[in-house]
Write a protein that binds this DNA or RNA. Sequence first.
DNA 1: CCCTAGTCGAGAATGATTATCATTTCAATT
DNA 2: AATTGAAATGATAATCATTCTCGACTAGGG
Lengths: 148, 148
Amino acid sequence: MNEIASMLAEAGLRPTRQRTAVAEALARSGRPVTAQALHARLTRSRPGPGLATVYRTVQALAEAGLARTFPAGDGELAYKLCDPGHHHHLICEGCGLVIEIPSCEVEPWAARAARRRGFALSSHQAEVFGLCADCSGQARGRRSAARA
Amino acid sequence: MNEIASMLAEAGLRPTRQRTAVAEALARSGRPVTAQALHARLTRSRPGPGLATVYRTVQALAEAGLARTFPAGDGELAYKLCDPGHHHHLICEGCGLVIEIPSCEVEPWAARAARRRGFALSSHQAEVFGLCADCSGQARGRRSAARA
DNA sequence: CCCTAGTCGAGAATGATTATCATTTCAATT
DNA sequence: AATTGAAATGATAATCATTCTCGACTAGGG
Ligand SMILES: [Mn+2]
Ligand SMILES: [Mn+2]
Ligand SMILES: [Zn+2]
Ligand SMILES: [Zn+2]
């Protein structure tokens, strides 16, 4: 039983062939993917899990805390395997790369903001957007080329 | 020309009867509302703007920076009139109340996180969740009553 | 008043997500 | 190895928020 399969088992999800395929594809991608895209990728060549199963699996992973959701394109939801436990994200607007920021330095601010307004703090959420090294490198390259 | 109408005009949107009605309803609500809910509210008794117009208007307001979007329920989008300019939100999980946090104390953290990983910072986003005074008061009251 | 770009809105179309439900697979037990 | 009740799957239909279409209507400058 490989890495992914045991991860599913620990979360109380039977590591079926289909679920394992979905979770593996998700892990292989490393960045948020929609259920639709995942299904397309899994059935392009070989026959793969049905669309309904892909939806059920990514939702189960999210409920188990093994995946997070990201708003994609229009109103769609993209999923990405994530470390359980509190952390934030650094997201590249160029290529969609997502990097986890494990240490939370936002908590004190959140607590202060809540207390100051009579709120009982429950949680907070924060994301940083930018261009990863590769993407900003390309942009810089393109700009130089145009100038030359 | 009232408050709302001139706000629309300044944003380059003709203050038609329909758009004004939508923006006024949005302002009256004070908390995020979906286009559907807004349309229902506007047409319950009197005849109001068409559904397509409600969608067009809230989207225009968002593009103009006069409204922000909040993920609602499942994958739907809710809109709320917001101050233009950078700020964060304190959101009550009980009643949906949204309070703006104008001063940004998150910027330094975002800049540091981005730089440390070779990202060119572009923006950041942060929200605090909890229970407003009213909602946590009710919860406390209910608990005491049960105990008594 | 006239004209034209901008708006409206009723209804059809789109497309992601969810629900059905008959069939298959799991995994634990005889 | 055979049995079995529960969980999972998937082809298909159903939902339902959002977007499109396009003919009719308006605002508002000249
Ligand atoms: Mn993560
Ligand atoms: Mn706001
Ligand atoms: Zn990138
Ligand atoms: Zn509240």
